[in-house]
Nucleic acid binder design. Structure first.
Lengths: 257, 257
DNA sequence: AAATGTGATCTAGATCACATTT
DNA sequence: AAATGTGATCTAGATCACATTT
């Protein structure tokens, strides 16, 4: 909130910057937008930009296996950033990064980001803290996959998406979700049916809407809560809360076909 | 190799430092050792030190779930470091870090490490590159848990431990390994029996020895290879190779009760 | 045509219970 | 006593095959 003169930032990580750090970064931030399905980078690509999702924009990190399956490992929304965040500078990407829900972004050339990090210790530390939170999220996903049922993980995914975007209708086919979770489509279809029959969600072709977030929360595993707790320890106020938006518009309908 | 005058370092990440960066860090590195089972930090602890496993020392990162189970998310040996590596400075730990195979370490106060990072861009970048590789390892573990069988994951774990330590006999009970992988002890016992019957491993009470590493490699999933490939892209020469040691003694028997 | 639903069947892995080995 | 082995049984989830819906 510190550096807000009429310009809604729409990204909590950038909003958490000190005023002077924001001034360093601001000239290098480009306005950018992308529709659902856009690939930010593929495994092996040299990463040139960091992307900051704004408003309801959402990105998935995916590990692509030899057989072509792409398993999701983390979701990033307006609490964070994608691309060259953990590493410094331009490196080959390990993952695929795919826009899960289209919308607006800030984008920055990694050379500029590196310069900014060299210029400011506090800026560097903020990004390091975010990297720690992203790491925590991926750590938790390992444990989640090993320990929790498909119903729990499905509920977790839906909640994570809703919390980050502030949007309660996710545009995703059951097939896509099944691949991301690494489970069978046919079985997932039954899990989703059960959730629907209990009135927790609503479904349409290619879309799942949350009707009872609190019911979903009680069905989900502990994993989301554990991650958001770490965010609060390390980056207070960055993980999306109940009333999270800084006046940034939620919906970018044109980017969600 | 650059900065080696008779002192075997025993850690590939430190060995990859430029001579001048090594000179910055060396005075802050303390000799330290720990037996198998030592906890370096618990979830929520303020992390004060980074630890560099030397020789055959090996550390596990574990996520502790609400029900008390501790699922392993990454192994760290002489290719890396544990504690405050991704983050900067002292932060609450998200994971448990436990010594999986006792031995020697270098240890550094994180305040000193931060000072060194501030003093040297190249040192900072080396650690950032390592953080990227550690992240890749955890990413891959998410996909591995979702996609691969228990036999594949067991083979992967054994290989990862052998590659990092250079020791082909891991001191671990089947119960411990089952918990770390998040699988049933009883079922794992059968998987291990099958591997033994095929002559791939040998077992003793509380110990598993690798007899045919190449057979094990063909039974394991792709995940180890994918991670070591990324190490080679990003930190050439740091992931343990066939003849990895810089004259550092392999065995610290006193620390492995 | 792509997405979803669903019956039928299969199987990897979990769980229980208890014996055996170290 | 702790670790391991193993028979018996159960079940979450996978897979197949095909119908139905959008």
């Amino acid at each position: 909130m510190k550096h807000q003169q009429g310009e809604p930032i729409g990204n909590n990580l950038l909003r958490a910057l000190r005023t002077d750090d924001w001034k360093i970064l601001r000239p290098s931030l480009e306005h950018w937008s992308a529709p659902t399905g856009t690939l930010l980078h593929e495994p092996g690509d040299t990463v040139r930009y960091a992307y900051f999702p704004r408003g309801s924009s959402l990105v998935s990190y995916l590990v692509v296996l030899n057989d072509g399956r792409a398993i999701e490992t983390a979701l990033v929304g307006r609490e964070g950033a994608v691309g060259g965040i953990v590493s410094q500078g331009r490196l080959p990407a390990y993952t695929r990064a795919e826009v899960q829900l289209g919308g607006l972004f800030f984008r920055i050339d990694l050379n500029h980001l590196e310069d900014a990090k060299s210029a400011s210790l506090t800026l560097r530390h903020l990004f390091a803290r975010y990297a720690d939170c992203l790491m925590a999220q991926v750590f938790q996903s390992v444990a989640c996959g090993a320990a929790h049922s498909i119903e729990q993980r499905t509920a977790r995914w839906l909640l994570a998406a809703v919390e980050r975007t502030g949007v309660d209708a996710m545009t995703v086919t059951q097939e896509q979700l099944a691949v991301m979770l690494g489970v069978g489509r046919s079985y997932l279809s039954r899990v989703i049916r059960d959730l629907r029959q209990r009135g927790v969600i609503e479904t349409r072709r290619g879309q799942i809407s949350i009707r009872k977030a609190d019911r979903l929360r009680s069905l989900a595993c502990e994993c989301n809560a554990a991650v958001s707790h770490h965010f609060n320890d390390v980056l207070k106020g960055v993980y999306p809360a109940e009333h999270p938006h800084d006046g940034f518009p939620d919906v970018q309908p044109g980017l969600r076909e």
